[in-house]
Design a protein around this nucleic acid. Structure first.
Lengths: 361, 361
DNA sequence: ATGAAAGCGCTAACAA
DNA sequence: TTGTTAGCGCTTTCAT
């Protein structure tokens, strides 16, 4: 594909596409100047810029970001790895990330891991091959995540979303205070008069958040002189209810001195549990109260609307991205990364009233 | 940042990163050969390949896809534009797209439009600047979509997901047959004994699918000698129920000779309507039956499980991507694009039984 | 404020 | 089968 083998001293060769070179040529400026018009407009004189812009318009110039990113040695791409979008928590979070990133001139690449370590590895590799400048991600358990260790080892900047970084750790995160907010949630249950409150969780071992929220539950119980009950752990992420699942819940809520309130560690779980209870003829909140955690919008759409500990999902995404960019661009290409930048950003939760919590039966 | 300004005839300059050049050097082969090991392994001898692979391993080589994509003049990036991920339909679709794309060695860039034309334009421009080879997208109304017209004009390959391309049009799409499937759905209502059936829809004017499904409804009614009723059009995409909305539904279902069954043009709408009915003390399906459309997994999680016309959302995504790739790689870099390739792929729907449909009151 | 020149890391003719 | 070579489109010193 050699073009213009005949041109000697003449200007290189008219390439076909609407590239910067052609824009520059049409505007009668150098490639460098044309480039500056788009990346550093303040470095070029007003009228020169206008000529370039006009030429660009006429040629239908569309900057090729691949070229820019390759050359610039910073791709301005942020990789995003979320467990799944089928849980609205993460869908809402993505929207926050997307708005924030595009507003700052950053590009995004999204992958979903389904909490599968093998997939996580592979997807991260995919992102790294695209030379993302950094990552925003949620893992099942930050404390034992192979993928985070790899990232640490390679020195790839990342910010966790939802996973709450250790207070004195080196990792960055944006989340609510899972433990404190869970405690606050359970305390609304206690305030409603409940004494026998149990936690319902997805795969406990797998999720650091489930564990932290469970601890918050224990805090609340102990602070009020109540006995923490053994939790019900459900196989997470089931698309539909298995008979075995239904049966376990039946036993759980009909046993002698069964709990009068259930604290589910996430909203999807709560919604599923409420459906099962209804199927079993157990009234919510008449017979059993149910409190969720997450604050997905869907919860408010249901009847009764889900009572829940709401996280600002959109904002978690937006702030996680903002935090990452702050690390990537220390004071707009200024000094070293501010060491006092707080590692774990804690956003306020909210207690959403709903109507799935009532007084004990 | 000039390195090695002293090197004269000597080999260029040892660059720092683990690049292909360095791998090649370490393996004692040329850049071209090293490249082939990764892109066209069949062109290189077994043992040579192994040496290269080993060198790559030792250097911790990670291919820079930015370089590859820039040079190759085909980015192998597919742009994806979906209205929102907060509707599980599209979240499920994304997962199908993601699996399919990564399995084929393609990269993805996702944007969400919220059905907002301004955002659509802007997001498409963003994707085009990244030099996506093609697009998979869902628009509100394919028949009057500025963005599709632009794409057509620019000759950008794309495949619609969910939007059903006209039978004899030039556009490609992957969807169910909205009209036929809607008719089938409404016929289950009729089979259950309903005579007064009404459509509930989001923004009617905005969505081509809502219109097509409404036509399917009319087909069913007429075929059975029934009188189509005026539809109830609800402000779409409301996160929560406004009092006005509740009131409109109350009047709708309590009017004299009110419908005994409602066909909602999508599942989220159905879920919201069911909640409102419950709040109004109207039993589903005791007093009014409700049929949804979409088949999101969430529907089965509720109690009663949502009766719905199910689309294969995952597969719609996967197939749309497959269709696009088939256009991008005519018979694996063979002949011209097969003109007989069907434009509108119609996938089978399924009637999901659920329990929100019963006999008329 | 602008230009000249040197690549970013990779692929793909073409030649050997 | 392998190597040589010429860039993809852009940004960025450095010099003017």
């Amino acid at each position: 594909m050699r073009r213009n083998a005949t041109a000697l001293a003449a200007p290189p060769a008219p390439s076909n596409g609407a590239t910067l070179v052609n824009v520059a040529r049409a505007a009668g400026v150098s490639l460098a100047t044309a480039s500056r018009v788009f990346s550093n407009p303040e470095l070029v004189r007003q009228d020169t810029a206008e000529r370039v812009l006009q030429a660009a318009g006429e040629l239908g110039f569309r900057p090729n970001l691949l070229g820019a990113k390759l050359r610039a040695q910073r791709s301005r791409i942020v990789g995003v790895m979320l467990p799944t979008l089928e849980n609205a928590v993460f869908a809402e979070c993505w929207h926050g990330i997307e708005e924030a990133a595009l507003a700052q001139g950053y590009s995004l690449m999204l992958v979903t891991s389904r909490y599968d370590p093998a997939r996580e590895r592979e997807r991260i590799e995919y992102l790294l091959r695209h030379r993302v400048d950094g990552l925003v991600l949620t893992v099942a358990d930050a404390a034992r995540s192979a993928v985070l260790e790899q990232l640490d080892a390679e020195g790839v900047p990342y910010v966790l979303a939802y996973n709450q970084a250790a207070r004195r750790g080196k990792r960055y995160s944006v989340s609510v205070d899972n433990r404190v907010s869970a405690r606050a949630g359970v305390e609304t249950l206690i305030a409603a008069g409940h004494r026998r409150i149990a936690v319902v969780s997805g795969a406990f071992v797998a999720s650091d958040r489930a564990r932290q929220r469970h601890m918050g539950y224990q805090d609340a119980m102990r602070a009020h002189g109540l006995q923490p009950l053994p939790p019900l752990s459900l196989p997470a992420h089931t698309p539909t209810h298995t008979p075995a699942e239904v049966e376990r819940i039946r036993q759980f809520v009909t046993a002698p001195s069964a709990p009068t309130a259930l604290f589910c560690t996430n909203d999807m779980l709560a919604i599923g549990v409420i459906a099962i209870l209804k199927r079993l003829g157990v009234s919510v909140p008449g017979d059993v109260s149910v409190l969720g955690y997450d604050g997905i919008e869907l919860g408010q759409l249901l009847e009764p609307p889900l009572s829940t500990v709401a996280q600002p999902n959109n904002e978690i995404g937006a702030r996680a991205l903002g935090c990452l960019l702050a690390r990537l661009e220390p004071a707009s290409a200024g000094a070293a990364p501010d060491p006092r930048l707080p590692r774990a950003t804690l956003l306020p939760h909210a207690l959403r009233e709903g109507a799935t919590v009532g007084p004990p039966a």
